[in-house]
Simulated assay, not measured.
Amino acid sequence: MSSEDFIIRQYRNRIRKRVLSTMLVGLILSVLVFLDIQVGSSSIAFKDLVDAVLKGPAGGSSASFIVWEIRLPMTFTCLFVGASLSLAGLLIQTITNNPLASPYTLGVTAGASFGAAIAITTGFALFGQIWLGVSLAALVMALTVSAFIFYLGSKRSLTATTLILVGVIMNFFFQALQQYLQYRASPEIAQIISGWTFGNLQRSSWISAGVS
């Protein structure tokens, strides 16, 4: 066997393993999603769950209401947010060529949290919806931090290690600003900021799932 044939064979084996791994992870994820929808404070029997899914939101039963108005929006929001975080981590690790890099280490997450804290403190709303204003402020700050890091990497020719160090500094900087806002805010506002930072799926809806 020539070296070229050996490389091709190794490549095909690697692709086959990745496909099988993806299928296995997809199967496990499907089972977990099903269990997440079925199990809860009000357990739903398998037959009732299937009927609720097939009949849709207009099923009229209590199981349909629980599945379509509470559990499915929460589940899909969790899936989309998790996939987005994974994709963000993959992109940053690829760009910096560092397996330990993430939106947290580069300060992007801290910048987004600070933007959300500003919107919550000032009561900024978009189209009369505060949650839209908070999401927009977080997105703008995250893009601002990302643009600054991109500028340092492209114009100042900083290495990946230096960029990560800059990101760590920005992370602590924005965290300090957010802590200052929470200190100056009322207890109610500070609690909202803290809840937004840690995340909460209890208020999930189909709108939040679509935005995610």
Rank of each mutant, 00 (worst) to 15 (best):
S154D: 08
G107Q: 03
L91E: 01
L158W: 06
T161D: 15
G89R: 02
S84R: 10
A176F: 11
T122K: 09
A101Q: 02
A116N: 02
L126H: 03
G89E: 01
T96M: 10
G115Q: 08
Q182A: 12
S204R: 09
T94A: 08
V108H: 04
A116I: 03
G123T: 02
G195H: 05
L136F: 12
A138Q: 05
V168K: 01
R156I: 03
L163M: 15
P187E: 07
L126S: 06
L158C: 04
E188D: 12
Q93N: 02
T197N: 13
A147Y: 14
A117G: 00
T94L: 07
N98S: 07
A147L: 15
S84E: 05
S135V: 13
A185Q: 09
S86Q: 06
A160D: 13
L201E: 01
Q182H: 06
N200T: 00
L163E: 01
S86R: 07
A160T: 13
N171C: 14
A142M: 08
E188R: 15
I193R: 10
S86D: 00
T162H: 15
E188M: 12
Q175M: 14
A147Q: 10
L158K: 04
L152S: 00
Q93S: 03
M170E: 00
I130D: 09
T144H: 09
A138E: 00
G107Y: 03
A101I: 04
L85M: 13
I92F: 08
P99F: 09
I95C: 00
G82T: 04
F124C: 02
N97E: 09
T197L: 13
I169H: 12
T122M: 13
Q129M: 13
S186L: 11
I130Y: 10
S135F: 14
N171S: 15
S113V: 00
K155C: 07
I193Y: 08
L201Q: 01
T162L: 14
